[in-house]
């Protein structure tokens, strides 16, 4: 069966950014190459088919055939999958995929009945970027910090700062002029929104980051010729390794670049201990809320720690 197939690929990442140019296009090109050009693709980036939070539904309903979606942007839809956004210290997305997919097989698959999952993972860890120096918990009291949502909001609250919500596009001016004092986000978005120009200081402690994934529409998947399915599955799962981006090397290079204009200081070990304690309490509260709803929150945390251990990623804040 030599049938060809064209993939309509959707993402909210901006067309000229690193995600589209250095990750998704190389991944789709690899699918094309391995299938001898029987797989082709059309790229709909920059939210051409819908707004950021709609991207899971865009794939689910079939406006696109395959796409990237940020799961933390639709709170309540994937309650257990939120475990992926715990404050873990993981600079490489491919490791996140390994742990994420192990979790998918163990307990998260019921949350994704509507789509074909190629991979789920946590984004590269988010740090704290501020306009004033922060070396201790006390410095954070009363600071207004823009949160990406989800577990990161709880983390900001747990540290004693005030989480503020606003579109990422407004953060630059708001930080520059003092509407907010800082932002919790990952290095990739700091770079994309030029926040390194306005944040003088960085605390490279991990807040965890949004959970995300790569999904395929179910009806489209049924139409994919059987011999092409393994290609899409394996290239999709190994997208980060194939593109060679968002790994330890990329993380180190980006942070080094930031250090030329920003003061980025690690917390002292004792101080880090205090922050981890706060994160731990936050995770206990989260797990208990899930348990109250009849979901295995505690088991999710321990399972996640086990799976992270297999790829050598630390989870010091894990309470169980």
């Amino acid at each position: 069966d030599k049938k060809k197939i064209n993939i309509r690929f959707s993402t909210w990442h901006v067309p000229s950014g690193a995600d589209v140019q250095k990750l998704w296009i190389p991944m789709l090109e690899e699918m094309k190459k391995r299938s001898n050009n029987r797989i082709t693709y059309t790229m709909y980036s920059g939210g051409a088919l819908g707004k950021g939070p709609d991207h899971f539904d865009i794939v689910k309903t079939g406006l696109s055939d395959m796409g990237y979606a940020t799961l933390s942007w639709t709170p309540g839809r994937f309650p257990l999958t939120d475990v992926l956004s715990s404050p873990i210290v993981c600079p490489a997305k491919w490791k996140g995929v390994e742990a994420g997919m192990a979790m998918y097989d163990r307990m998260l698959s019921p949350e994704f009945k509507d789509v074909k999952v190629l991979h789920i993972n946590n984004c590269v860890m988010a740090h704290l970027w501020t306009t004033r120096a922060v070396t201790r918990l006390e410095d954070l009291q009363g600071m207004k910090i823009r949160s990406p949502g989800g577990l990161q909001t709880r983390a900001i609250q747990a540290l004693g700062a005030t989480p503020v919500f606003m579109p990422l596009g407004d953060v630059y001016l708001s930080m520059e002029t003092g509407v907010i004092d800082g932002v919790v986000t990952c290095p990739a978005l700091v770079k994309a929104f030029k926040l390194n120009e306005v944040a003088g200081f960085g605390v490279p402690t991990s807040f965890g980051c949004v959970s995300e994934g790569l999904f395929v529409n179910k009806r489209f998947w049924e139409r994919v010729p059987e011999d092409l399915k393994p290609i899409i599955e394996s290239v999709g799962r190994d997208a980060y390794k194939i593109a060679g981006i968002f790994d330890e090397g990329w993380y180190a290079a980006t942070m080094a670049e930031f250090k030329t204009t920003m003061e980025i200081e690690e917390l002292s070990p004792a101080e880090q201990q205090r922050w981890d304690d706060r994160f731990r309490k936050m995770l206990v509260a989260w797990a208990e809320e899930l348990e109250a709803k009849g979901l295995p929150g505690k088991k999710a945390l321990t399972a996640f720690r086990e799976e992270l251990g297999r790829v050598g990623v630390g989870f010091n804040a894990c309470p169980y």
């Binding site: 819908g50 309903t61 406006l63």
Partner: peptide, 26 residues
């Protein structure tokens, strides 16, 4: 959209567009 894809795709896109516009904070 219905002609290029399917009416089952066009329907949620229609509702999403209106609902999204009416609930966008900005």
């Amino acid at each position: 959209i219905a002609f290029i894809t399917d009416i089952s795709v066009a329907l949620p896109t229609l509702v999403r567009s209106f609902n999204g516009t009416f609930t966008t904070y900005s």
